[in-house]
Amino acid sequence: MRRSNKPLASRMVSPMGLLFNRFAFAFLLALGLTLLVAGRSGIGPVEQVRTGLLDVLAPVLDVISRPVSAINDLATEIEQLSRVYEENDRLRQENARLLHWQAVARALERDNAQYRRLLNVRARSDVTYITARVVGESGGPFVKTLLLAAGERDGVEPDQAVVSELGLVGRITEAGRNAARILLITDLNSRIPVMLEGSRRRAILSGDNSGRPLLAFLEAEAEVQPGDRVVTSGHGGMLPPGLVVGVVASVTENQVRLRPFVDLARLERVNVLRYRRPSLVNDRNGP
């Protein structure tokens, strides 16, 4: 049978085609709006479907992100190679300084252990790590998230803290079987209880999608200066206390902004903290 030579576009603009097209457009428009409303209000299985599809997409991203990761590693190595002498000199000086700090830390550790024994303090060592690769970024302007190639199968669960070697990155918001999503501390929806390390004044670290999240609800009488270190307070029991977050970047009359220690745009591997929250209920015996 000979195929019609009539171009598809002219076939598409036939009355039936036009009607179908308009119907499809209206249907998809309504579907999109429904998804938005359902997602916002938590109606229906939107979150479950999203997590399920994340599991399907994450392995694909994992595969195609490997060459990118290799190129990034190569670029970093070349960059480091170009300033190896300068770096070597810097590290030598830092090593001398750290050796001094090591001696101080050992002495303090001994003292601490002695005081703990005297006071019968219960040591908390219930934090373990899961190291995982970052395979995707949100990339969009309205959300700041990362995709992780580890999920429930590896022990990752929602609300766990995510850190890099430099400090806090964010927390897990979704966990599928093989993949999980991290909400970065800079995201609009991120709220982390923190405190100024020196004065122990509490605040809420509130993301606004910029690279410099706000320190909200800081006590009015709190003295804060650029350069002050900020750590997690552990209040609310979601995150372990004492995780380093960043330093105060700017202080104005209305707002205090923080510069995170972690370069959130260049993360390749992160650690998910498995932290047993303090609870009044005995987990072993059940409620």
């Binding site: 998809l28 999109g32 938005l36 949100s138 998230t145």
Partner: peptide, 17 residues
């Protein structure tokens, strides 16, 4: 795109449409 970004599901879908 929305699934990957973790943003509001339907936002980019409507924009692309």
């Amino acid at each position: 795109t929305d699934l990957l970004s973790g943003g509001p599901l339907g936002l980019t879908a409507l924009v692309f449409l």
